[in-house]
């Protein structure tokens, strides 16, 4: 999860994100598929990008307490997630079945303030499962997010209700994917393989 912690997220939005992560965790912890297979990592971006929680199995994961300030270094966040994936996602070898391709959920309420292209180039070099970019509120640019992935969703408002709906959908998506890989159907690669989003989460075509 790549989460925007820039100054514009201050107040209700960041609290909603913190709650959203908590709800996501408690929901997933009651799902045996997710509990056995899902690993999570949180990367935040404001003036710079930072891995708030390294890739951790769900049962051991502890939610970070996110605070909001500064700009929107989304480009740096994309490079960081690429680097961390190299380090933390196990590759399949002849002797060892590696991890499934990571699902990436990006949430931002603004436009990147750094060099997006550089991060994007790094990001595109890696293999991902589904990459979902969420534009939270009117100030977020769906066009920019469209450069990162074809799966762009938008939230009309960055309020606590809407953000919580988004996180519930993320959690359902993780559940679906862990069940899918358990049953041997392989990686999730498109939005169509995730559960349909709630009305608050609009699919940007």
């Amino acid at each position: 999860m790549l989460l925007d912690t820039s100054g514009s997220m201050f107040g209700e939005p960041i609290e909603a994100v913190n709650n959203g992560v908590q709800v996501l965790l408690s929901t997933l912890r009651s799902d045996p598929y997710a509990l056995e297979t899902a690993h999570l990592s949180v990367i935040t971006f404001d003036n710079s990008a930072r891995q708030a929680v390294p890739m951790t199995e769900l049962s051991a994961f502890q939610a970070p307490n996110l605070t909001a300030s500064g700009c929107t270094a989304l480009g740096e966040a994309l490079s960081l997630v690429a680097q961390r994936a190299d380090a933390e996602v196990t590759k399949t070898t002849a002797e060892k079945k590696g991890d499934w391709k990571p699902l990436v959920f990006i949430m931002t309420d603004g436009a990147p303030t750094d060099d997006l292209q550089r991060g994007l180039d790094e990001f595109k070099k890696r293999k991902w499962g589904v990459v979902v970019a969420c534009a939270a509120g009117a100030a977020a640019s769906t066009d920019t997010l469209g450069k990162i992935t074809e799966c762009v969703v938008s939230l009309d408002k960055a309020d606590s209700n809407t953000i919580s709906k988004f996180f519930k959908w993320v959690s359902a998506s993780i559940s679906t994917s862990s069940m899918r890989v358990d049953e041997g159907h392989g990686d999730v690669t498109g939005l169509g393989e995730l559960p349909p989003p709630p009305p608050e989460v609009n699919i940007v075509v």
């Binding site: 965790l25 912890r29 009651s30 799902d31 045996p32 509990l35 049962s59 994961f61 502890q62």
Partner: peptide, 13 residues
């Protein structure tokens, strides 16, 4: 601080 206590996966199946 927050601590999560997981359900035994056996009981979730």
């Amino acid at each position: 601080i927050h601590i999560a206590f997981n359900t035994d996966p056996d009981s979730l199946w």
